[in-house]
């Protein structure tokens, strides 16, 4: 069972704001999801290589040759806020002032 505290933490990591009702709801939904993995864990998988990828295509590479980019206007057109050149975001402050 996934606790409401764990839901709050996961939501925080995903930058999601959840209501109390949603937390309760997701707590039970995620718990049942994890239940599936319990079933899988009960299988005897000795000698089976772990799968870390579903694709069979290996070694897909591209040559190091440049192609045109989108252009500044197009790039910032999708920004929620802009000065016409860059994405504008709330000020980022990185340090506390005491050494």
């Amino acid at each position: 069972m996934i606790s409401k505290e764990e839901i709050t933490k996961i939501a925080g990591l995903a930058m999601l704001e959840l209501s109390e009702t949603e937390k309760t709801e997701y707590s039970s939904q995620l718990s049942s999801l994890l239940g599936y993995f319990k079933d899988i864990q009960s299988l005897d998988l000795a000698g089976v290589e772990p799968t870390n990828h579903a694709l069979v295509a290996d070694n897909v590479l591209r040559e190091d040759t440049a192609a045109p980019s989108l252009g500044q206007k197009t790039v910032v057109a999708g920004a929620p806020a802009t000065d016409g050149k860059s994405y504008r975001v709330p000020a980022i402050i990185e340090t506390e002032e005491q050494p």
Binding site: R62, D64, K85
Partner: peptide, 21 residues
């Protein structure tokens, strides 16, 4: 700024990255 940017490096939905050899 933002003149060397495309769908892939700006993280638009549905794009596929391909590794530079």
């Amino acid at each position: 700024p933002n003149t060397s940017v495309c769908e892939v490096c700006s993280g638009q939905p549905g794009v596929l990255p391909v590794l530079n050899a």
